[in-house]
């Protein structure tokens, strides 16, 4: 049964070219993140001072090829991008996961219980959504102090509200579905109805939203880092490279271009996958 459903999912993916492109790009980024130490040509922190700001394709005397050139400190851009994928992915995925966890839980409770609890949670959502995302992340980041953990929390907290609102809306319509009423009539406890009869049906749209949010969060993390409030400088990250390359943009276009391109491609891939997930629903599960 489940095998059959997964075959259908795979078939749909391969017949949607944009989804396939997204999956291939994302898979490349994930492989880079996992095997960064093996794949990257040199240590990204190593400074080749003689070869500062070398253009792409420069070969050093000891035989190292800087495929995408070097930055102002003579560090290999390609190796930096490969290692930077780790931070980008980990920060974005955990932050979005955190936001989704909080948002889905609160949205579920809000939609199911109704009444004053619903009002309180939804007003909190309104407040969160009204505040500019970057501003809130900045304030939270300053309040929580430095470190990767605080970035994850800062970015995650800002993402919960969209999840909560989406999930609440779906719960409101699911709550009156006859199979949910049937569970009520059968004497099911609230926890059972929420977790077994409602949650599985809202999860699909929450995952679609999350896949789109990961892209936004990667950009947000890079922006925070670019502003010097994100990932500490000793850890290679795309935002950091972008910030470093800014000073030499006219002389050495490759530093900002390639790190920026890494961000753009990853976010694009995530959006393509998100769009496909949104369009693709197993029709047999709809009725």
């Amino acid at each position: 049964m489940f095998a059959g459903r997964e075959v259908g999912t795979l078939r749909s993916m391969f017949t949607t070219p944009s989804a396939l492109v997204g999956v291939v790009v994302l898979a490349t980024v994930v492989v880079c993140a996992i095997f960064a130490d093996v794949i990257s040509p040199v240590d990204p922190a190593q400074q080749h001072l003689l070869y500062r700001l070398s253009p792409p394709g420069t070969v050093s005397e000891d035989g190292v090829t800087f495929v995408l050139g070097t930055d102002g400190l003579g560090r290999d851009v390609l190796s930096g991008i490969i290692h930077g994928s780790r931070v980008s992915l980990i920060v974005a995925v955990t932050a979005v996961g955190l936001g989704m966890l909080i948002g889905v839980a609160l949205g579920l409770v809000s939609g199911y219980s109704g009444g004053w609890l619903d009002t309180v949670i939804m007003r909190a959502v309104d407040v969160t959504i009204v505040l500019p995302f970057m501003l809130m992340a900045l304030v939270l980041r300053l309040a929580l102090g430095p470190g990767l953990g605080s970035i994850v929390i800062a970015l995650g907290i800002s993402g919960w509200a969209t999840h909560a609102r989406l999930v609440r809306g779906e719960v409101l319509s699911l709550r009156n579905k006859e199979y949910v009423l049937a569970s009520v009539a059968n004497g099911a406890p609230h926890g059972f109805i929420m977790l077994r009869r409602i949650l599985p049906h809202v999860l699909a749209s929450a995952i679609v939203l999350a896949s789109l949010q990961v892209g936004v969060t990667i950009v947000a993390e890079a922006s925070l880092t670019f502003l010097g409030l994100g990932v500490p400088p000793e850890i290679p990250s795309w935002g950091q490279m972008l910030a470093n390359g800014r000073d030499y943009m006219t002389r050495a276009w490759w530093v900002t271009t390639f790190s920026g391109l890494a961000i753009v491609l990853t976010v694009l891939a995530l959006n393509l996958i998100g769009d496909w997930l949104r369009d693709y629903r197993d029709p047999r599960l709809e009725r």
Binding site: E178, Y179, L181, A182, A185, R197, R284, L285, E286, R287
Partner: peptide, 15 residues
């Protein structure tokens, strides 16, 4: 006390 619903397509959880 139990109930049988009208729409056999929405009265069973598809999952």
């Amino acid at each position: 006390v139990q109930i049988v619903f009208q729409d056999p397509f929405s009265s069973l959880d598809p999952r």
